[in-house]
Design a protein around this nucleic acid. Structure first.
Lengths: 339, 339
DNA sequence: CGCATTGTCGGCAACGATTGCATAACTAAA
DNA sequence: TTTAGTTATGCAATCGTTGCCGACAATGCG
């Protein structure tokens, strides 16, 4: 059984009381310099580290924060987590990362576990299946600091960060239209997600500004968010089967973008006939298809901002009532390979 | 301040003693059915969950395990973690995931933090920079169950899982040779990694079996393991600059594979003149380059096996002295696109 | 010299949950 | 009425740490 050294061990070894050792280690004013040196030297020699469980129990502070994301095997989220970690690390916080696989149940149990494991705060990007937010509302009402990033919700008032989904989507669609595309289909993520609706709204607005009709026949929903390849392939097939075939596909999510490209390839669709533009943070997307234009989210930066917001919530001495929703702009990567 | 309900809260609300509540919740034999029902009903109604910190402190069991990997934004590791989680989840364990970014220091602090946070065990894949294993040896000697996966080390005797790196590498090289390649260069990961040496050994053996000379001029080391694109590009440039240019490149790691393909593309290398084969678990690798052959590791499976081994270590009542190193075979994906 | 101040340090209690042991209330038998 | 036996509940200690209070000696000052 693994058993690290405790303050008590040090106290016995040095013939001191546990409280004296504790204060010596924390550099308390009441301990003489001599005793401090003896204690810290001995502590270092046995590689003493305080027990975080005991500290959490006593102080209700764990200096660790919980992260709940749908999927680690997703470039956007792993990049965002890297951003979160970079800020957390230099502020002395550790991160506990959990994934939900877009399951509402896993999301709830993970969030509850983290809360009870006394994390000091929670960073969460909602899973696509969740419609009932009461578990989060309860945690939040009980005082757990929560910051939403990317997939945010309106139902809870707190700090939030998300991408300029509307604008990114609008620009991408504009670009497709300018290149002469007339019938632009959409592969959309689950409709209960904030990002899906914003991205769809940007698409619609671009059509409208160009006096092009919005055609619901050209929209396909991928409820599994690209986790289910078959769902995407079926959507693509049904688009190709339309009598009045689309000449472009706009995709509102990373995973669906990849699956769509794969589907088009396996169906031998002509890349010139069918333009493809989508959201993607894959680090190889520029190698994928010569004419694949994409919208990239600033994932790392978003993670950093989310963590900074959470720190503000955690370390504020007075309850915060003014909340901000930051919107990070996106990068559009068009046909010209400038990189 | 977030403050979950405690057993004491229940005791006061129900006018019972904390011990009675505790025993009722744990279904102790000494509590009447009536009291049990009252207690459990009330506990459910306020969504009571026991405090894991208190339990860990008392029982020295946290039912959570620590994971230390170099990089989350790496398909192999995110897939392996998914495998770990699948087993952990159904055994009632939570996972705490940390990444080292291939920094030896981060690795040490992460491992120590996890150990002190009283995880019941550790799953680790070594970062490329680490050469001093004393911190792990100390933890292991103190009784912390550790299982190594993928990037394993000899210095600590315990359960380990890794891929059939030698065979996978041998077969891939064989395949290159059979397709007529004569001068096969290598982009190798950091030389202190177990996987690098095994993969290089497989390459050498294939050359030997085909009576081809091993030429150290054709080997390039990428110490940053592909995290530094420039390092890879420089290696590729120097290979292309050889008077006797190689006609193939074999790559021992995922990230380096991607970077190499990108470098070749940006240098306008002819894919027919220069065959590329490498290890990769990227889920889009089949879309990348028409003639890119690759070796895929069974990451998910490896994660599952590692977690099962760790469970065996944790839950064994007697100290285990017989350890096993499992070797998982790899999949070779050649030119014929069968998928 | 007497009293207050300062500097060091130890003891106790508490954080939340569990558990061995003691004890209370009660029934049934002597 | 007393005693044994059963059932239900409370007390106190424990895990590692720290806040609070009190003990004690050395020192300063009037």
């Amino acid at each position: 059984m693994y058993k690290p050294a405790t303050i008590k061990d040090i106290a016995i070894a040095l013939n001191l009381s546990p409280s004296t050792v504790s204060r010596a280690l924390r550099d308390g004013y009441e301990i003489s310099a001599g005793t401090k040196k003896i204690v810290t030297d001995y502590a270092n020699s046995i590689n003493y580290q305080s027990n975080p469980n005991a500290l959490s129990l006593k102080n209700k502070r764990s200096f660790s924060i919980g992260i709940v994301v749908p999927e680690l095997a997703n470039s956007f989220f792993s990049q965002a987590i890297a951003g979160i970690e970079s800020v957390a690390y230099e502020s002395g916080y550790h991160t506990i990362i959990t994934q939900t696989h877009d399951s509402s149940t896993r999301e709830r149990t993970n969030a509850n576990h983290l809360a009870n494991r006394s994390v000091d705060g929670l960073l969460i990007s909602m899973s696509s299946g969740t419609t009932d937010y009461t578990f989060l509302k309860t945690l939040h009402k009980n005082g757990l600091p929560i910051v939403f990033f990317d997939r945010i919700i309106d139902e809870i008032e707190t700090f939030k960060v998300t991408s300029a989904n509307f604008t990114g989507s609008y620009n991408a669609t504009q670009s497709l239209i300018k290149s002469g595309r007339k019938r632009i289909a959409v592969l959309a993520n689950a409709p209960q997600l904030s990002i899906t609706n914003e991205r769809l709204a940007g698409y619609k607005k671009a059509l409208e500004d160009n006096k092009m009709p919005y055609n619901a026949d050209l929209i396909r929903w991928c409820y599994k968010g690209g986790n289910d390849y078959q769902e995407v392939e079926n959507a693509v097939i049904s688009l190709l089967a339309l009598t009045d075939q689309p000449d472009a596909i706009f995709i509102t999510s990373d995973r669906i973008s990849i699956s769509c490209i794969r589907a088009l390839k396996s169906l031998n669709a002509d890349p010139n006939t069918m333009a493809v533009t989508g959201f993607s943070n894959s680090d190889v997307v520029d190698l994928l298809q010569p004419n694949f234009c994409y919208v990239r989210q600033k994932a790392f930066e978003m993670g950093q901002i989310a963590m900074q917001m959470l720190l503000k919530l955690i370390e504020s001495k007075y309850p915060i009532t003014e909340f901000e929703t930051r919107v990070i702009d996106t990068e559009y990567h068009g046909m010209e390979k400038e990189n």
